[in-house]
Amino acid sequence: MDFSLMQRVFPFFVEAAFVTIEITALALVLGLVAAALAAAAKMSRSAPLRTIGTLYVSLFRGTPCLIQLFVLYFGGPQVGINLEPFAAGVIGLGLNIGAYMAESIRGALVAVDRGQIEAARTIGFSRFQTLRKVVLPQAARLMIRPLGVNTVALLKGSALVSTISVVELTYTAQRFIGSTYKPFEIFGIAALLYMIMVYAVARVVDMLDKRFAIV
């Protein structure tokens, strides 16, 4: 192990880790919005909306995220979409994870006991009131874990944007492996930083899960 090398390159990695955090956070926000819309569309009473929701989810889940990024970033200019690597990365990752999150959200909504809906309806609540006051508060709790798993997958998946030359953690690692020929040391640093982030997200998910547990 070459510790002086590790010491020398460490600051670059920390900087790169912040890019990874930034891109993950932005993609997460975009993904949640896309997921909420897609879940609503898939569960809507309008057939065209249902089709759109189903198509989005199945196409983005049925193909590799890497290809989606390549279509957007390399193919985009052919159809008039010119994006910076960072923007393409956020949009590509966000739309991809949104499709997975849509299923997490839908699964949680469907998992709420039917009796809950019936009870609210017999009191006289409308569909919307029932959704807002009875179904969503209970589903929110059921969503925390699956959405947490999606977020961890997004964080690790963000490494893919290195292939469209976003200078984040994996790109930085790749560059230093190429220039130093010390893959174990470089991998060690990058792995450490990823693991800190991944297990931090897992902790937050645990806390949220406890916080929203129904006593």
């Binding site: 290195s162 994996t170 893959p183 991998f187 792995a191």
Partner: peptide
């Protein structure tokens, strides 16, 4: 391995 990206693991195996 659960805490790090596959891409990084591939680099490690291939170049390592």
């Amino acid at each position: 391995f659960m805490g790090t990206p596959l891409l990084l693991q591939l680099f490690l195996i291939y170049f390592g």
